[in-house]
Simulated assay, not measured.
Amino acid sequence: MTAPSPTREGTRERILAAAVDLFAEHGFEATSLQQIADVLPVTKAAVYYHFRSKDDLLATLVEPVFADLEARLQAAQIGKPSPAARRAALTGFLDGLIAHHQMIGFITRDPAVRANPVVLARAERIQDRIDTVLLGADMDEPCRIVASMVLGSMYSAVVEHGDADPALLRPIVVESVEAMLRTVRRRPKVAH
């Protein structure tokens, strides 16, 4: 197998960059592959050469974000959760969100992107893993509610304030999340 030529690889990267800009400006659903081709300018066939479909292009855009977040969660697997281990896992995951804040904003703000089957499946897998890391595997419904609030607040803080100094953003988010998690730990178990 031969390595891709610099020109082909450059075209692929230009297509991805143009797609991000157009998706952010017009939304995923309202942007066509022809519009992406027109902006570059390349032919629509050139776009299809690199990406089978718009969904394939989207999957390629979000893959590095999801792969990084999953790797951070894998590295943070906690045997017996301790406050220090939980904080380290939370901080590592948050740092991943901060590193990808522009793409996280793109993913969370566009309903068509969030509903895309590839994005939805990966996002749900990440949700399950962060929930397990932070709250354990045997969550009841109140724990799941808090877990949703935790992840939602983290995404919101990063999307709205991702350009802020991480040294300022990180402790505020971590302390707020830990406060939410304490409400679950203090809550008495309810027998069903």
Rank of each mutant, 00 (worst) to 15 (best):
I107H: 09
F106M: 15
K189C: 07
E63A: 12
D128P: 00
I104G: 11
P117F: 00
T60P: 00
F66S: 01
I130T: 09
V190E: 15
C143M: 14
R144F: 07
R86F: 09
A137P: 00
V173G: 06
L151Y: 05
F106T: 13
H192Y: 14
V190L: 15
D95G: 11
A84H: 06
V159R: 06
H192P: 15
A24Y: 02
R8H: 10
I78Q: 14
Q77E: 06
L69S: 04
Y49R: 07
V150H: 08
H100R: 02
H100L: 01
Q102P: 08
T132F: 12
E63H: 07
T43V: 05
R109G: 15
V118C: 02
L120G: 02
R114W: 06
Y49S: 03
S148W: 13
L97R: 02
R12P: 01
F66P: 01
S148H: 14
G27N: 14
V150I: 12
M1V: 12
I15N: 09
R125S: 12
R125H: 11
A19L: 06
E13W: 04
Q74D: 14
A3M: 02
F66Q: 02
K80D: 14
Y49P: 01
R122T: 01
V190R: 15
T11L: 07
S53K: 03
G10A: 13
A18S: 13
T31M: 08
T60I: 00
P4Q: 07
P6N: 03
V150R: 08
E178I: 04
G10F: 09
D131S: 15
V113W: 14
I78S: 15
T2V: 01
T91A: 14
R86P: 10
I130G: 09
A3E: 04
L94H: 04
D128F: 07
R72N: 02
V119W: 00
D163K: 06
Q77Y: 01
G136A: 10
S153T: 09
R122H: 07
T108N: 10
E141C: 08
A89F: 07
G92T: 03
R185M: 06
A137Q: 05
F23D: 12
P83K: 08
P111D: 05
A167N: 05
P81Q: 13
R129H: 13
